[in-house]
Simulated assay, not measured.
Amino acid sequence: MVVGNFLFINTEISSTSSIHFKLIPMPKNHSPRKKQFLDESLKMIHEKGYQATTMRDLAERMGFEVSNIYNFIDSKETLLETYLFQISEDFHSGIDHILESSHNSTGKLKALISLNIQLTATKPYQVGLLVNEWRNLKEPKLKKFTDRRSEYEEKVRLIISEGIESGEFRTFDLDIITHAVLSSVRWIYYWYTDHTEEANPIELEKQLTEFILGGVVR
């Protein structure tokens, strides 16, 4: 499946075995200079926060005049909106493929964990917008985003409810276990960005999968 700028290929077929994805970079249309600007902008927002980051800060980071920024982006708000909705749709695309797969509920939950780790590993600063900065959106974009966020949470809820109904998962309160799973996968961003140099996505996936499934699967 294609998610954002990467092609994810499921390398496991069994619904009970570990699920891993190979990442094949997809071509981008940005010039090297624009890509550098966008990457540095996202990194600075991660470091300082969206509200504290100014267009002048971005210009100084890149070593050019503020006016030159507008060759790449027309406003800080556009930068936030573009990348926030892009990463949101990456998650939706990924979970839609998972829901449409032939995996049982356990396999789908494993794939959900894998999706979150892979996107965090490849796009950590965009995931950071999703976790920390979405409240800075202005209406009507904020309403559009929160609606999509709720839709994603409902898709996670569906995986868990089907697992409970099939007897694969333990019988817990559906709201509690859904929010516990969502909190666990969102935590990945905080851990990963604090341990980027030594982070091993495969080992992280193994341990987090064992932790979540150990509390959910019968």
Rank of each mutant, 00 (worst) to 15 (best):
I176D: 04
T193I: 10
G163L: 00
V156F: 04
P25N: 01
I13D: 08
D194G: 03
S31Q: 12
I45A: 11
A180Y: 13
S67A: 07
E89C: 02
T54I: 11
A199K: 03
Y189D: 13
A52H: 11
E12W: 01
S161R: 12
Y83D: 08
A111S: 13
K108Y: 03
R135P: 00
L130D: 12
E151H: 14
I95Q: 04
Q36T: 07
F64S: 03
G215D: 03
Q51W: 10
L204H: 12
R61Q: 02
K35Y: 11
K110V: 03
G94Y: 09
R148G: 15
K108A: 01
S102F: 11
F8G: 08
F8A: 04
E133Y: 00
S102E: 12
S41I: 08
S150I: 11
D90M: 11
S18K: 11
E154M: 07
H46L: 01
N132R: 06
V216E: 08
Y83F: 10
L142N: 09
K43F: 00
S184R: 01
N5Y: 13
F85D: 06
R148M: 15
Y192W: 14
F6G: 01
L204C: 09
S88T: 09
T122A: 10
W191D: 06
I212S: 08
E197H: 10
E139I: 15
D90L: 02
G63A: 02
P32L: 05
D194F: 00
V156I: 13
L23Q: 13
S14K: 00
V127P: 10
L79Q: 05
S67G: 07
E210Q: 14
E65I: 01
S150R: 14
L137E: 00
Y70C: 00
E89R: 06
G4D: 00
P140A: 12
T16D: 15
I13G: 10
Y70V: 03
L38Y: 14
T178K: 15
S15Y: 03
T196G: 01
N132A: 10
V156W: 00
S41C: 13
E165Q: 09
E133D: 06
F211T: 13
L79F: 06
L182P: 07
L158H: 14
H30V: 13
N132W: 12
G215W: 10
I188Q: 05
R157Q: 04
K155L: 08
H179F: 04
S67Y: 11
G214A: 11
I113W: 06
A180I: 14
K43C: 01
S183F: 02
L38P: 04
S17Y: 06
T78I: 04
S88W: 01
E154K: 15
E81W: 00
I202F: 02
L129F: 11
L174Q: 00
V131I: 13
S102C: 07
L58W: 03
L84K: 08
K155A: 09
L79P: 02
S14P: 03
D90K: 08
T78G: 07
S161E: 12
E65P: 00
T193K: 05
S93R: 09
N71P: 00
K206P: 04
H20W: 05
G128P: 08
E203N: 13
K110N: 09
N116Y: 13
Q51S: 13
E154I: 12
P32W: 03
L115V: 12
L119N: 07
L79Y: 05
L158W: 15
L109Q: 08
E154W: 07
